[in-house]
Amino acid sequence: MMKNPIEHLNKTFDSRVRLGIMSALLVNAEVSFNELKELIAVTDGNLASHLKTLEEAAYIKVHKGFVGRKTNTTYAISKAGEKAFKAHLDALEQMIKGVK
């Protein structure tokens, strides 16, 4: 009997928004809050809460800066985040291959 592959999927990446954030951060050195908002097309509050979850899991790094007087918060992926997200992608791939 094959081991249930679902256990390799990371629960943290279970939402479309978090998946979007991680994908964007994986290919860009840093992405600002507003850029993420435009890319993923979600409300401020929704995006902020998902970012918080990822930050608490230590998958992303937050950098609070300023552009003029406006706050400009940028996000970057952490080493742990990169590892976890890549493992998640591999698990997704394995599952699709397994079912075929």
Binding site: G20, L39, L92, I96
Partner: peptide, 16 residues
């Protein structure tokens, strides 16, 4: 899962 992978690919494209 296929949808998730497609989303990820799209986001990587769009965000860069």
């Amino acid at each position: 899962h296929l949808d998730a992978l497609r989303d990820i690919k799209q986001m990587m494209e769009r965000s860069s």
